[in-house]
Design a protein around this nucleic acid. Sequence first.
DNA 1: AACGGGGTACTCTGAATCGAGTATCCGGAA
DNA 2: TTCCGGATACTCGATTCAGAGTACCCCGTT
Lengths: 213, 213
Amino acid sequence: MSSRKRSNPLALAVLICLFERPMHPYEVAATLRQRHKQESLRLNYGSLYAVVASLEKRGLIAPQATMREGRLPERTVYAVTESGKIEAHDWMTELVSTPVNDYPSFEAALSFLPALPPGDVVDLLEERAMHLKVELARAGATRELNEKAQLPRLFWVEDEFRVALREAEFDYVRRLIAEIKSGAFDGLEWWTEIHASTESQGTEATPTGKARR
Amino acid sequence: MSSRKRSNPLALAVLICLFERPMHPYEVAATLRQRHKQESLRLNYGSLYAVVASLEKRGLIAPQATMREGRLPERTVYAVTESGKIEAHDWMTELVSTPVNDYPSFEAALSFLPALPPGDVVDLLEERAMHLKVELARAGATRELNEKAQLPRLFWVEDEFRVALREAEFDYVRRLIAEIKSGAFDGLEWWTEIHASTESQGTEATPTGKARR
DNA sequence: AACGGGGTACTCTGAATCGAGTATCCGGAA
DNA sequence: TTCCGGATACTCGATTCAGAGTACCCCGTT
């Protein structure tokens, strides 16, 4: 009934925070930031207040009280409604059970790979690999801190998952580099050729290929 | 200079298509669809024309001619400009060399895992694993078709990468299921407890934890 | 006593996104 | 012959997003 627009997971975050106790939007943001959710969620004020307004319009949350302290702007405290609880539950169910395409930008980049000459690509991939290595090292350190602080794994599965994906990405990038360098990469001759004339831009040669499938 | 807003990779796709030869926007879309780029890119008409307008405003593409056939709507053919070529090159360089956070929605879901009872989570993760298995099987079939059609790997690295990530996700999900089921998952007692009273919604108990870090 | 930096709590605006809608043409079936 | 479905080529409006900006407070310094 109310699954009209389930785009922004920030709305789910709000619902779940208000599930714990009524809060005002800024407090929700502070809570999320304190729990490091800004690494898994696009958290910024413009979206936050927009999302809160939308949730209210859809009857998933309701203002409980508006108070003000001194001459500071009003704080509107919201509470989650019954249908809000149901929506949060359904949304979680969907998110966990059903994979979706998130269109990672590196995938897009790979799909345009022929646009750059293979030599440049190798250098850029090597740079990416380095960045990934650094990121993984930092993640490992954070993980150790979490363990030392006795923070149960339940509260950092999302980091663990991110690391798993990044490791897979790292492996893939390394393999790709190796194969291009070795010359064994299928399509390399054509790829080299279309970038042969110019130093670093090939204004020619459509990668027509044969119509796929 | 012109890296003002590099959000939507669809703009890069347009640039690269026009690099091959001048086209009108709809033709760009058709070309991209024919090459199965809609699996790596959010491709829809609303965004396409918006993106084209923005590229024109920024001087990265320029209208070459507007023609009409019969009483069909006008087709404006665009060509990429010199600065458009540079922008495409720089953008590609950035995309390939620098990892970014794409905020995958499953990561968000994992970060709210305590909101659902562990038993439900196991079932949902198992459903996800099944979906992933199907997807991987389909991807394998597509790959074999590509190989049989002698389509060089250069033209399906993006699919290969997607598969690598999905495989990592699959492995992670399986491990998670196993650990929760075995009872070895750290934090499971607390997790079970807060969902003990009610059948499937725990309106109580803030997962306060200790303040992280 | 005045000042500055950091935190609180939003507000505003312009851009981006999405999907439905429009209007036309074409080819084949009934 | 006429109708119908599908392709062509966009247009429009309603959200949604992003992030800079505003206004105030508190606290320590000079």
